[in-house]
């Protein structure tokens, strides 16, 4: 059984649909990348799963943790999960730390919450955690404030705080976007090392396919509140099946070979309040036909563990058994 399974999760802010039916599961110890452009709902997915969205959001669906649905669960059940079983770190580390508290205290707070440590014991553990995430001179930095540290160091503090609860899953929401390239490399390396040492699972949310490909074994690509393609990392790059994934890959300037025009995706992401009919990507898609504006495609298998939500995506693995005949499926959807 998967560690966590998100089932048909949808989120709406008023009339804007932020998520339109997300299905995603994470196995124990697995690293999953969640990729997409701003506003596609990749962060909202996990904030919704942990009940961290404002009360104005309408959340539907299920989030199964150990066979129990935690979506909309009472506080008493959610609070031990947050930071205890599932920890989160965020994009802008400096803004994500309380500016008026010392970093040692902020890390220690998580220890008290989830491991009931206090006083000297907690202090010693905080310093050990700070060492573990590579903060130099941890004993003295214990009393530092976030503004006294660099962005990279603050992200390490966030990671130490996340580790404090000994989580089974770390959700890293664009952890390196605000950082310099060489610091990004440090943080990604740290995350990989920590995962190897602790065996925790990780969801890496990023807009950068490159970042995700090196760190994760499986990748899910999101567009306009849906997962449009999901595959093991190598296959996502060798056999991208959804036109949007292909567009994202084509947008990335190559590092070798002759320089050609980039294959950019025209247009821009639809507004959440004005989602187009049918496939949300159709207005920007080079392959779209009339059918695409009618049918809202569901995920179809391309190969083992590889799904794409496009009616024109073709399976590339010969022995893939489709649940039902594709053309019949398309016809059926088109009739609705």
């Amino acid at each position: 059984m998967a560690f966590i399974e998100i089932e048909n999760l949808s989120v709406a802010f008023g009339r804007s649909m932020a998520l339109r039916g997300i299905n995603l599961s994470v196995e124990r110890g697995e690293a999953v990348g969640l990729v997409g452009e701003s506003g596609c709902g990749k962060s909202v997915t996990w904030l919704a799963a942990l009940g961290l969205l404002p009360a104005s959001a309408t959340v539907r669906g299920s989030v199964w943790l150990d066979g129990k649905d935690i979506l909309g669960a009472p506080k008493a059940r959610l609070e031990p999960v947050r930071g205890g079983r599932i920890a989160m770190i965020f994009q802008d580390p400096a803004a994500s730390l309380n500016p008026v508290h010392r970093i040692g205290r902020q890390i220690g707070e998580a220890l008290t919450l989830h491991r009931r440590m206090k006083g000297e014991q907690a202090r010693a553990e905080v310093i050990r955690l700070m060492d573990q995430v590579g903060i130099p001179d941890a004993k003295n930095r214990f009393n530092a404030y976030p503004h006294e540290l660099s962005g990279g160091q603050n992200q390490r503090v966030m990671i130490a705080m996340a580790l404090a609860g000994e989580p089974e899953l770390l959700v890293a929401d664009e952890p390196t976007t605000a950082l310099d390239v060489t610091i990004q490399a440090q943080i990604l390396d740290l995350l990989t090392t920590l995962r190897r040492d602790t065996g925790m699972a990780m969801v890496l949310i990023s807009h950068d396919l490159g970042v995700v490909s090196e760190t994760c074994s499986r990748i899910a690509v999101m567009y306009a509140g849906r997962i449009v393609e999901e595959a093991p990392s190598e296959r996502m790059f060798s056999h991208p099946s959804h036109p949007y994934t292909r567009g994202l890959l084509g947008s990335l300037p190559p590092l070798t070979g002759p320089r050609q025009r980039l294959v950019a995706i025209p247009g821009s992401v639809p507004e959440a309040a004005r989602m187009p009919k049918g496939c949300a990507f159709a207005p920007r898609c080079g392959l779209s036909t009339e059918l695409c504006t009618d049918v809202d495609p569901t995920a179809l298998p391309m190969a083992d563990e590889h799904n794409a939500a496009c009616i024109f995506a073709k399976p590339y693995q010969a022995d893939i058994h489709l649940v039902r005949d594709r053309s019949a499926f398309i016809r059926e959807r088109a009739m609705q």
Binding site: L47, K75, F90, A95, A110, L113, M161, A164, G165
Partner: peptide, 19 residues
């Protein structure tokens, strides 16, 4: 953002507000 961080680490809401 740090309020979200405090909630995400499992602090009960009154403690988030107070601390």
């Amino acid at each position: 953002s740090y309020i979200r961080t405090a909630s995400a680490k499992g602090l009960p809401w009154p403690a988030v507000v107070w601390r």
